[in-house]
């Protein structure tokens, strides 16, 4: 498999959970990492893990919903070199019944999950076009594919990420920039464990997930690494669901 030696990858929301795992796995394959997060301490910790893996790290702290701030911190990362890989991982989730979703909550979900993805793409695109290469991996969700109750705004925002993925694949293919998405299903992140507890996770796994377990962040990171590398050089506009057999849809 093609490694990522000499590549520079921007991973958004890389301070915790799946984003941190993506940063670690890409670093293990040889990439230097721009660690973006809104929480500085978390980003610094991830940067340390990247350095432990023997790669360079640059920390970029900002609210991804703020396009101007993001462009500024990404500009500072130029010291590391040009960005070849963008992993649009930053995202937020809220469990709120439809009737109770206030406008501000709706707006914030879309500001981070959709506008944040848009902002990061804007920040790296000129350089990728100049060099005529780049790999974008957006993080969708099986919730955006099949719907889940109790988080309609989140489902819609992830559906939007799928739309961006497909449109960008077509718009930027002429510059050899590939755009794909991973679509995680039930993954045992720190947040999942906090919300459901291990007992709840085991119960749901047995009842609902064909492979009878939750995924681990690494299961998703490996798909990110595959899509980011040259081994996926003829793959663009596609979605890889990592869901243990949930969300067997589409064609």
């Amino acid at each position: 498999m093609a490694g990522l030696e000499g590549r520079i990858a921007l991973v958004t929301g890389a301070g915790t959970g799946m984003g941190r795992s993506h940063a670690e796995v890409l670093a293990e394959r040889g990439a230097d990492i721009v660690v973006q997060d809104i929480v500085e301490d978390a980003a610094l910790e991830t940067a340390e893990l990247v350095r432990t893996a023997g790669r360079r790290a640059h920390v970029a702290v900002c609210d991804i919903a703020d396009g101007v701030a993001l462009a500024a911190v990404i500009g500072e990362a130029a010291a590391l070199g040009p960005i070849d890989v963008l992993v649009n991982n930053a995202g937020i989730h809220a469990l709120t019944p439809f009737e109770e979703i206030a406008e501000a909550e709706f707006d914030r979900i879309f500001a981070v999950n959709v506008a944040g993805t848009f902002n990061a793409m804007r920040a790296v695109l000129p350089g990728m076009k100049d060099r005529r290469r780049g790999a974008i991996v957006n993080v969708a969700s099986t919730s955006g594919q099949i719907g889940t109750p109790g988080d309609t705004h989140y489902c819609a925002s992830k559906g939007a990420v799928l739309g961006l993925t497909k449109a960008w694949a077509k718009e930027f293919a002429a510059w050899s920039i590939r755009v794909n998405a991973v679509s995680p299903g039930p993954i045992a992140t720190e947040m999942t464990v906090r919300n459901r507890g291990w007992e709840g996770i085991r119960e749901r796994a047995e009842k609902e997930i064909p492979l009878r377990r939750y995924g681990l962040p690494r299961d998703v990171s490996y798909a990110v690494a595959y899509l980011a590398g040259d081994g996926a050089g003829f793959v663009t506009g596609q979605v890889i669901p990592i869901a243990g057999g949930l969300a067997i849809v589409g064609i």
Binding site: D219, V235, I248, I251
Partner: peptide, 30 residues
């Protein structure tokens, strides 16, 4: 490369899926 990825333990949480490798010519499904 796609076959090798799906065959490896790295894809252990993926089942029932279709991985299209077509250079963006066919972008469908969801």
């Amino acid at each position: 490369n796609a076959v090798a990825y799906l065959a490896s333990s790295e894809a252990d949480f993926i089942t029932g899926q279709v991985l299209p490798v077509n250079g963006g010519e066919f972008i469908v499904g969801i």
